[in-house]
């Protein structure tokens, strides 16, 4: 699937959808960014509660095209601005990581 397909997933709200068709091949759930740095694979969707711009920096470094903020967290404006400049998409979900991953999985 590509990042744009995430718009079809029930329960996901788009905050910024980047241009291009960045692939989403896997999902990584994690709230410790050091763990994400060490383990997330390129082209994964990052499911996290870390709603700040450092998450965008980590995603950019690893080639993760999309961040999905879970548990009702919403991105602050500086996070959205950072995502725009790095071509990273941001969605949010009111559900937890597990339920959000379950909702995305059929589209992978």
């Amino acid at each position: 699937m590509t990042v744009k397909d995430l718009s079809q997933v029930e329960g996901l709200k788009a905050h910024h959808v980047a241009e291009g068709d960045q692939a989403v091949k896997d999902i990584y759930c994690g709230d410790l960014l050091s763990d994400v740095m060490a383990n997330a694979q390129e082209d994964s969707a990052l499911l996290t509660i870390q709603a700040h711009k450092n998450t965008v920096a980590v995603a950019s470094l690893l080639g993760l095209g999309v961040i999905v903020l879970c548990n009702g967290r919403t991105p602050p404006s500086d996070m959205i601005e950072a995502a725009k400049s790095e071509d990273i998409s941001i969605f949010s979900s009111s559900a937890n990581h597990y339920k959000t991953a379950l909702a995305i999985t059929p589209f992978l």
Partner: peptide, 11 residues
Amino acid sequence: LPYYPNNEKLF
């Protein structure tokens, strides 16, 4: 501190 090269553009 685990070693990663710094990315000046991002950090």
